[in-house]
Amino acid sequence: MADPLLDIRNLKVAFRTDDGLVRAVDGVSLSLYEGETLGIVGESGSGKSVTMMSVMRLITDPNAQFDGEVIYKGTNLMGMSQDQIRSIRGAGISMIFQDPMTSLNPVYKVGWQIEEQIREHEHVSRPAARDRAVELLTAVGIPNARERADAYPHQFSGGMRQRVMIAMAVSCNPDVLIADEPTTALDVTIQAQILSLIKKLKQDFGTAVVLITHDMGVVADMADRIAVMYAGRIIEQGTQRELFYDPQHPYTWGLLGSIARLDRPRPRRLTAIPGLPPSLMQLPVGCAFGERCAHRFERCRETPLLLDRAGPGHLDACHLSAQQKQDVRDRTIHPELVEERP
C-alpha cells in the first residue's frame, strides 16, 4: 500500500485537573489512506473526538498535554507553529461537527462564512469567492443557492445547516475531511440525506474521510476500515467486513449485541454490557475493558497489546485465543439466537 495520507503515531492527550491527570487519548496509532473512509467508533469519553481534534490542533485548553506524532504530507503536525497549522486547517484537512445548529456563526450570512474560508486560503477576489460559494452550496443540494447564500444560519433547518457546513469544509478541496458525529443531531431521514451527500462528495472530490460516530449502522453504510476505541485506546481495528463479520474484541461484540436491530428477529433481551466505562483518571491495571468483560481471565491483568492476531491488518487488544473467541462471541452478538436454542 502507498504511504498513508495521515499517519497518527502513538498519540497521547492528557488533561491536568484538580483531581488528577485525565488520560483522554492513551497511545493511539491510526493511518488514513487516500480516498478511503475510516470509521472511528466508540462511546462518549472513548477519546475518538479528542484524537481528531488533536490532529487539527483544535484543543486550546491550556491544561492539555500532547505527546506523539501526526504525520501529514511528510510533516509532523504536532510540531508545527500556529501559523503553519492554520494553512492546513480548512485547506488540507477540514472538519465538520456534531451540532449544525451551533456550528455556524449566527451573525453572518452563510455565503459570507464560506467565502471567508476560501479567501483565507486562496488569493481570489470576493466575487470569485462568492461564485465558488454558490457553486458549493448548489453541489451540496441547497436550492436557489445564489439567494440562499444571503440568508443567515437560523433561516435554515438542521439538515440544511449541516449541508452548509459540508460545503464550507470541502470549499478548498481538502485531502482529508474529518466528520465528527455529523448526523447524530439529525433525524433519521435527514441523516440518510447527509450520509449520501458525504458519499457523493467523496466520489467527486476524492477526499479521504474520517467518520467519528457511535452508530454501528452508520459505519456499516460508510466506512472502508473501522477502528473501535474504548477508554482512550484502540481495542480493535480492521476492514469493515472484519469488524462486522469476524469481530475479535468482546467490547466490539457488546456494541454489536446491544443494538436493537431492525434486520434481525426481535430478541427478548438485548445484550447489555454491564457496568460503566472506567474513570480516565484511574484506569484499571491491564485490560481497560476487563471489569465489564464476561470472558475475563488471569492474563487480563496484563495490558493486552494491539496485535494482528486474526490476520494481517486486523488488529485487536484481547488475550483470548482465536478459538475461544469463536466459541463465545455469537451468543453476545446475536441475543436472538441464544434464546432460540432449547
Binding site: V188, A192, Q193, G217, A220, D263
Partner: peptide, 23 residues
Amino acid sequence: LSAVPVPDPDLSASRQRLVLEGD
C-alpha cells in the same frame, strides 16, 4: 424504515434505500 442504517455491511449495500427529499 428505509432510512435507518443497518449494522450489517452486506445488507446495507444490497438494500435499496429511499432517500426522502427535503425537510
